[in-house]
Amino acid sequence: MTDLAKTPGQDPVAPLLEVEGVRKAYGDRVVLDDVWLTVQPHDVICLIGSSGSGKSTLLRCLDLLEPIDDGVIRFRGREISDPLVDPREVRRHIGMVFQAYNLFPHLSVLDNCTLAPRRVHGLGRAEAEDRARDLLTTFGLEEHIDKHPDRLSGGQQQRVALVRALCTRPSLLLLDEITAALDPELVGEVLTIVRRLAEEGTTMVLATHEMGFAREVATAVCFLHQGRILERGTPEQIFTEPREERTRTFLRRVL
């Protein structure tokens, strides 16, 4: 897997996602500035950097939750930053998990997981529920299937949120600091799932503060600083011999 990250340019497989010169500003504040990123199938890209460096905004832009101010985003070879593209059509194939879980409190765990498959992807109730049950069981949530999200611990809720995203069988998974709101002891149970997804070859872009985890699962690590990807490399390279001084400063602070 690490080989993929080392030689993305020569990879024969077409890239799943291409970000070219993306810019995003809120008024005068430039949040993303000329961001370039290529994601190949089965890549696990970890975005690291201090808060406010643009990690979350980048993920939100990729899911078309925020309009970009310049540049091009291509998904499966097609430009999705085109105003004529229907964002819902794009989001059908992209899963997103948020820092604050964002489960629907009025729906049971099972209904949370079957909502999009049934309403958006046209699955029948039985099929959608089978799929959700399978995934929930795989991730150790079988006893919570009929509960409402508020009854669950933070770690369990975040695992449900992951299952909810997976139930639509997305070809790209975006994870926005999904362990940042969890107690340290609950972080592990969520990361175990992500690790497993990485092993299964799920393509993921994730913003994270968990450096040890990034080092372990990432095929490539990107260091963001003031809205730019300052450095991209394999985990070994970024964590042992970063090229940029700012990366070094950042890693000294967090490791």
């Binding site: 993305p8 010169g21 810019r23 430039v30 500035d33 000329d34 370039w36 990123l37 290529t38 101010d69 310049d70 540049g71 091009v72 930053s81 085109d82 105003p83 004529l84 990107c222 730019r228 990807i229 300052l230 450095e231 991209r232 490399g233």
Partner: peptide, 29 residues
């Protein structure tokens, strides 16, 4: 990686693609 290191530019001028997109959005509006 070439995409990681780009010399910071001071001012920003919208690219041709962005201008085209703005035209499309204006037409949509």
């Amino acid at each position: 990686m070439s995409d990681a290191t780009r010399a910071p530019e001071g001012g920003w001028t919208p690219s041709a693609r962005e201008l085209e997109r703005r035209r499309v959005r204006r037409r949509q509006r």
